[in-house]
Every structure is written in C-alpha cells, then in structure tokens.
C-alpha cells in the first residue's frame, strides 16, 4: 500500500483520504483503528482530569462498580461502564479478557498458560493480568491464530 503525506495548507484541517476499489476487512480494521486512535478518553484522578489516547491505555478494570483505567504507571477512574468501553473500542486493540477486565493487546509482552485453560499475560509495564478461558478464543481471533 502506497502512503503519501502532503504538507497541510494554512488553516486547513488534517485529513486522511483512502483510495481503494474495495473496502476489505483489513482496510476497515485500519479505518476503525484510526477513528478509535483519534478519540481520547476522559479519565479522572482526584480533581485532575486527563485525556488518554487508546495507545496509552494498558487495561480497564472494574472493581466494586468503579471502572479504572491503568496506564504505564498511573491509574485513573473513568465514568463509563466496562461494556460501554468494550463497545466503543471493539474495533481497536482493546479486548475483553474477563468479566472485569479489558486489555490493550498491543501492550501484551508475553503469554503463559495457567491451570484450567487460562492464560497469564505479562504486560509491557511488568504487570500481569489473567485471561479467562472463555475469552481465549477472542484473543486467538484477534491475533489471527
């Protein structure tokens, strides 16, 4: 695929034009990833409000009816429910891995098998999360295995 980047005229809005005869699944995936990548998530830490890009997110975790978003070093709270986040980021690298967790697949450094068909995912920041057996097929699908 040829990629052309042109300088932006003064005052013009950034724009991505895709020239293709067919919108195959791979291309659709790219479009959704671009869209999701541009939208920033509002997260809270005490009185501070931060805007997070999906690429900064390591995982979402639901604890006691509160949803936390974990980044490389910091943890924030978000207002959305886990199922809402799952829906928002369904076409991105964020994948549901258990009833209480959504992980960014691109942050998984290594996977190891555990008892009972589960997988332990070691993330880039050194944290480890558990992938439930029932979500392992979704991960396989996401990685094309």
């Amino acid at each position: 695929m040829k990629i052309t980047i042109e300088p932006l005229a003064e005052g013009a809005e950034e724009e991505i034009i895709i020239r293709s005869d067919t919108l195959d699944p791979e291309l659709m995936e790219l479009i959704y990833a671009l869209k999701a990548g541009r939208s920033r998530l509002t997260a809270y830490s005490g009185s501070d409000i931060v805007k997070l890009a999906p690429s900064e997110i390591y995982y979402f975790e639901s604890v006691d009816n509160r949803v936390c978003v974990c980044c490389e070093k910091n943890v924030y709270e978000v207002k959305q429910k886990l199922y809402e986040l799952e829906k928002t980021y369904e076409r991105s690298d964020l994948l549901r891995i258990s009833k209480a967790m959504i992980v960014n697949v691109s942050k998984i450094a290594r996977l190891a098998p555990m008892m009972g068909g589960r997988l332990e995912a070691a993330l880039d920041n050194g944290e480890k999360v558990i992938i439930s057996r029932q979500y392992v097929p979704d991960l396989k699908k996401k990685l094309g295995v």
Binding site: R110, P113, L119, V136, V145
Partner: peptide
Amino acid sequence: EKKDADKLNKALMERR
C-alpha cells in the same frame, strides 16, 4: 495449552 500460548506469542511478536 502451552502450544496454543506459543502460537499466540509468535503472533504477538509478528504483530509488534
């Protein structure tokens, strides 16, 4: 399960 995990790790590496 170990074989599956190895395949997934390979796919993760290729993705990276």
